[in-house]
Every structure is written in C-alpha cells, then in structure tokens.
Design a protein around this nucleic acid. Structure first.
Lengths: 132, 132
DNA sequence: CGGGGTAACTCTCCATTGGTAAGTAGGCAC
DNA sequence: GTGCCTACTTACCAATGGAGAGTTACCCCG
C-alpha cells in the first residue's frame, strides 16, 4: 500500500514528535512556564525583591505548601531564583530572583499587560458564545 | 488574643485570595495560557494561517484528539480562533486566528525567543544543581 | 526538664485532569 | 450490504495537584 490512512499518518507523526520534543528548548521552556505558579512566584519576587517562604505563601495565597516548595525547587534548579538559608531560631529561608529570572519576568509583565488590555474583549466573546 | 499564629494568618490570606482571584483578569488569562496546548495551537495557526483539525493534530503530534477539540473549543469561546465548518463529503473543519489571537501570539513569540536565547544557561544551571 | 510555639517543609489521602482507545454520524466507494 | 473517511464523543485509567495533618529542630517560659 502506497497511501497511508489518517490513523497511520498520526502514528508516524507521533513517533517523530517523541524524538523531536526531547531536544527542543522552546518546548522545554514552555513546559516550565506553563505551570500556573511559576508566573506568580516570578511576579511576586519581582515586586518585593527578596521574600521568605511564608511571605510567598501568603502573597499567592491559593498555593498549597506542597506546590510552593515544588515550584521554588524547580526554579532554583533552573537558575531563576536563589534560595538562601539563615540558621536563625526557627530557620529562615529567603528567595530572590537571579538576573535570568528578572529577564523572564519582564516578558511575563508583557502578558499581564495584554491581559489587562484585552480581557474585556475576551469576556464579551465568552458571553456571546455562551448565549448562542 | 491580639496576635495571630502563622496558621491563622494563612487562613485569613486564603479568604482574601478567594475574593480576589474571582475577578482578577490577569489571573484568568494566566489560567488560560498556562495550558500547554494553547501556546502550541496559537503558534501553529500563526505559522500556517488556516489549518484543518487533522492538520493541527499532526503538527502538534503529541496531542490527543480529546485535548485538541477541548483546546480549540475554549480558544473559540474566548474569541482567539474562528471555527468554520464546510459540509463537504467527510465534513471539513477549518481553524484560523482572529486578530486578537494574532496579538497574543506575538507575545508568545517573545517567550520563544527568550527560550532560544537562554535555554543553554538554564541547562547549565540544571546540570550544576544536579551535580551537587 | 517538659510543654508550647515557630518556620519550612514532608506525607497521606482524595478529587480533578489528561491520555488511550474505542465508538459515533453521515456519506461515498466498492 | 461492508468498509473507510473526518471530526468528534465517550469510557476508563493513571498521573497530577490540593487539603490538611504530621515532622524536625530549636528556643523560651515556668
């Protein structure tokens, strides 16, 4: 058979994708920032400079402690924040953006600005869609 | 009691958050684009102009049909893409970006550019973190 | 010396989400 | 009729994320 069914084409594309995605940097970053809490941590740290764990927990109040530690760890691993432990009475942990983290945050602010500028249009589109 | 325990502070912050988040447009948008597939659909449509359902399925090959329909529906609802059905033999469905969708895509390209420029630094940070 | 309080986690359980695979509708080709 | 096409929809199942309690390590008060 010289022609392929749609199912076969999908199958083939899937294999190509598996190989492709492993080494694609923009895709890796996408996975990183496609995490709801990453953007919020970045924004909070950019606003306040240095913040403690509990401060962050209050600022992005909806976050669970589990997800906060998890997010901060991965950001630290990627070199976007620095984690510094001060051995005070109850231990104090501070987080700060690195220059790299700051540069990413600038792009994020662009998204925030877009949201504020266009959210009313989006809302109108939603209302219209739901009405029909 | 005039002072609050940390637990009580967290509880209070949580209530404030619930009220805050419901009406915050930038947060709503964040939830929208914090979906892995949204960015990819946007990028694909911006590249190719109009695409059919199966074309998109092949382009972002890792996507399941379920998630593709789901993503496209929500983008349509938000006025970022248009869906047009042509009643040909097997029905043909085309998707195109609206001007609104295009404007969001421009920001996304900024992120892509950041990724390509900085992914090597991130990778180096990861390696170092994993090594110690 | 023991009980209580604190910060930053860590663990356990459960609900929601996303992936896989199979099924559906309507029409044409055989 | 049987089978195949596109664009879904549905059923099931594994993984992810949230809620909340538990843990560690320390100090202070009585």
């Amino acid at each position: 058979m010289s022609t392929m069914t749609a199912a076969q084409q999908r199958e083939q594309a899937k294999v190509a994708y598996d190989a492709f995605v492993a080494g694609c940097p923009s895709r890796q970053l996408l996975d990183r920032i496609s995490d709801k809490w990453v953007a919020l941590v970045l924004a909070a740290l950019a606003d306040e400079g240095t913040m403690r764990f509990s401060q962050l927990g209050r600022r992005l109040a909806g976050v669970s402690q589990k997800m906060l530690t998890q997010t901060l760890r991965s950001l630290e691993r990627d070199g976007l924040v620095v984690r510094s432990v001060t051995p005070t009475v109850p231990v104090t942990v501070d987080y700060t953006l690195t220059p790299l983290g700051e540069s990413l945050d600038e792009l994020m602010r662009g998204l925030k600005a877009w949201a504020e500028a266009h959210m009313d249009v989006v809302q109108a589109a939603r209302d219209e869609y739901d009405a029909r």
